[in-house]
Write a protein that binds this DNA or RNA. Structure first.
Length: 424
RNA sequence: GGAGACGUCGCAUAGUCUGGUCUAGUGCGCCACCCUGCUAAGGUGGUAACGGGGCAACCCGUUCGCGGGUUCAAAUCCCGCCGUCUCCGCCA
C-alpha cells in the first residue's frame, strides 16, 4: 500500500509512477476523490456520535418523564448515527480498495517494459567458448540424466508436467547449494528460518502477490489458504501487526522453503528440464530496515547474492529491471542472470527487490521512532540460492566426457567431491 | 472428530453474572522528576494503537481476539468465526 500522505501531498509523483509502470494514472484521482468523501462523511459521523454519547450519559441519570423524553430524542439520533456510520464505512472501503490497487511507487527503475532493463555490469568471468574447447555443450537435462541427478519423466508421471525428481547426486547437489546459502547467511548475521508454505489470504494479500499476478498463486479453496511462491511471504508476515525494534540496525532473516508457482500463461515456455517448474526450493534473504536505509540495504543484499554466485563460479550479468516489469510491491529490482551456454542467453538466478514501506504498510509492521511515534518500516528480499541454480551449474561446469566439475565453494557440502561422474 | 475453560492498555490481572458511575481499575515493568553522601528503599507524575480536525496547546472518534446482532446505550447480553489451554477419541 502506498502512503496516503504522499498521495495527498504529491499526487503527481504517484501519477508519474503509474505511467512509468504502464498502469492507470487515473486511479490516483479516484483515490483522492474517495479520500475526500471519506473524510467528510467521517467528520459528520464523529460529531453525531459524540452527541449520542453525551446524551447517553444524560439518559443514564434522568428519571421518569424526563427520561422518556430523552429516549425519544436519542432514538432518532441513533438512526442518524447508524446511517452516517454506514456512509463513512462505505467511503473507507472504497478508498481501501483503490489504495490496494495502486502498486508501489517506482524509485529509480528505468522506464519501459520487460525488454527495457538496463545491464549494469557483467561478472564472473567470460563465458566458456565450447567451440574452442572442441565439444558441443549438453543441456542441463541431458547432463542431469547422465549423472542420475534429474528425472523429469517420472516427475510428469506422478505429478504432471513441470514436476521432477532430484535423484542421487542431484538431490545432494541441491542440498549442498542451499546449505552453502544458509551458511553464508548465518555468517553474515541472518537468522535462519524454516517457514510455513501455506498462508492465510491476508498474508498473501499483504505481500502484494494477489494483484496483477494472482494467477501465479496456488490456492487451496477448501481451507482458504495459499501456497507461497517464496518464503518472502511468510517472512514478511512474520512481524505483521508488530512494532519492532530496529535501533540496532536491520533485522535479517534467511528463509528456507519450498516454493510453488502455477506458471499460468507460460505454456510452451522453458518446458524442458527444471528451468521453469511448479515446485522448487529456495533460500531467501529478507530484511526489515529503516526506510532511509532501504536503498543501501538493497545494495547489500545484491552484494550477498553476488558472493553466492561467486562461490558457484558462474558468469552472470546484473540488470536493473524496468518499471513496467516490477512486481506490484517493488520500487526497484535487481536481477542476476547466469549465462546458459546451450541456449546462449541469460537466465535469472537471483532477484532482489526493495519494497520500501509498501508491504509493511499493508501488514502493519512498524518501528518506534526517537520522538516516540510509530512509522512503517521498509522490507527487502533477495535470492541466495534455488533449485534452478543447478541448471546453470551443470551447463557451465560440464566437461567433454559428460562429467561436471564441482566449484570449490560447494565441495565442503559434498564431502569434498570434485567431479560429478556420469552413471550411464 | 467430541467436551470444557479461556482470550481486557508491554506483562500479570480486576471488571462480564446484575448493560449506563469504564474517560477500562490495580500490580509489575518502563520514562521523567523529587528525596537520599553512594547503593537500596521511598515519593510525584507520566506511560497503547489508529483515524479526523487544529499553526499549536488541545479536542473528537474508533479499538476490550475477529465479524455480525439486540439496545437510546455493549468489555458486559445473543449468534457465528478464529486462536490458546485441558480432557477424551482417532491416526502416526
Amino acid at each position: 500500500m502506498i502512503d496516503l500522505r504522499l498521495l495527498r501531498d504529491d499526487p503527481d509523483a504517484v501519477r508519474a509512477s503509474q505511467q512509468a509502470r504502464g498502469d492507470d494514472p487515473t486511479l490516483v484521482d479516484s483515490a483522492l476523490d474517495a479520500d475526500a468523501r471519506r473524510r467528510s462523511s467521517l467528520t459528520e459521523f464523529e460529531s453525531l456520535r459524540a452527541e449520542q454519547k453525551a446524551m447517553g450519559k444524560q439518559v443514564a441519570k434522568a428519571q421518569g418523564e424526563e427520561k422518556a423524553e430523552l429516549l425519544t430524542r436519542t432514538k432518532h439520533l441513533a438512526e442518524q448515527v447508524k446511517a452516517r456510520q454506514a456512509e463513512a464505512q462505505g467511503a473507507e472501503k472504497e478508498l481501501d480498495e483503490l489504495l490496494y490497487a495502486i502498486p508501489n511507487v517506482v524509485e529509480g527503475a528505468p522506464p519501459g517494459g520487460e525488454a527495457d532493463f538496463v545491464v549494469l555490469r557483467h561478472e564472473g568471468g567470460t563465458p566458456r567458448d565450447f567451440a574452442a574447447e572442441g565439444f558441443t555443450p549438453r543441456d542441463h537435462l541431458d547432463l542431469g540424466e547422465r549423472l542420475g541427478a534429474i528425472d523429469t519423466a517420472r516427475g510428469a508421471k506422478v505429478s504432471g508436467s513441470r514436476f521432477y525428481y532430484l535423484t542421487g547426486i542431484g538431490a545432494r547437489l541441491e542440498l549442498a547449494l542451499l546449505n552453502a546459502a544458509m551458511d553464508q547467511a548465518v555468517t553474515e548475521g541472518f537468522t535462519p528460518m524454516i517457514t510455513p508454505t501455506l498462508v492465510k489470504p491476508e498474508t498473501m494479500r499483504g505481500t502484494g502477490f494477489l494483484g496483477a499476478h494472482a494467477d501465479e498463486v496456488y490456492r487451496l479453496e477448501k481451507d482458504d489458504l495459499y501456497l507461497v511462491g517464496t518464503s518472502e511471504v511468510a517472512l514478511a508476515g512474520y512481524h505483521a501487526d508488530e512494532i519492532i525494534d530496529l535501533s540496532a540496525g536491520p533485522r535479517r532473516y534467511a528463509g528456507w522453503s519450498a516454493c510453488y508457482r502455477r506458471e499460468a500463461g507460460s505454456h510452451g515456455k522453458d518446458v524442458r528440464g527444471i528451468i521453469r517448474v511448479h515446485q522448487f526450493h529456495k533460500v531467501e534473504m529478507f530484511s526489515y530496515c529503516a526506510p532511509e536505509d532501504a536503498a543501501a540495504e538493497h545494495q547489500r543484499l545484491l552484494a550477498w547474492e553476488e558472493a553466492m554466485l561467486a562461490k558457484v563460479e558462474l558468469p552472470y550479468r546484473v540488470i536493473d529491471t524496468a518499471a513496467g516489469d516490477l512486481g506490484s510491491s517493488a520500487a526497484r529490482k535487481f536481477d542476476c542472470e547466469a549465462w546458459l551456454p546451450t541456449q546462449e542467453r541469460y537466465l535469472e538466478l537471483t532477484s532482489t527487490s526493495n519494497c520500501t514501506t509498501f508491504q509493511a504498510r499493508r501488514l502493519g509492521v512498524r518501528e518506534r521512532t526517537e520522538d516516540g511515534s510509530t512509522r512503517p518500516v521498509a522490507t527487502l528480499n533477495g535470492t541466495l540460492g534455488t533449485t534452478r541454480w543447478i541448471v546453470a551449474l551443470l551447463e557451465n561446469h560440464q566437461q567433454a566426457d559428460g562429467s561436471v566439475r564441482v566449484p570449490a565453494g560447494l565441495r565442503p557440502y559434498l564431502g569434498g567431491l570434485e567431479v560429478l561422474e556420469p552413471v550411464r
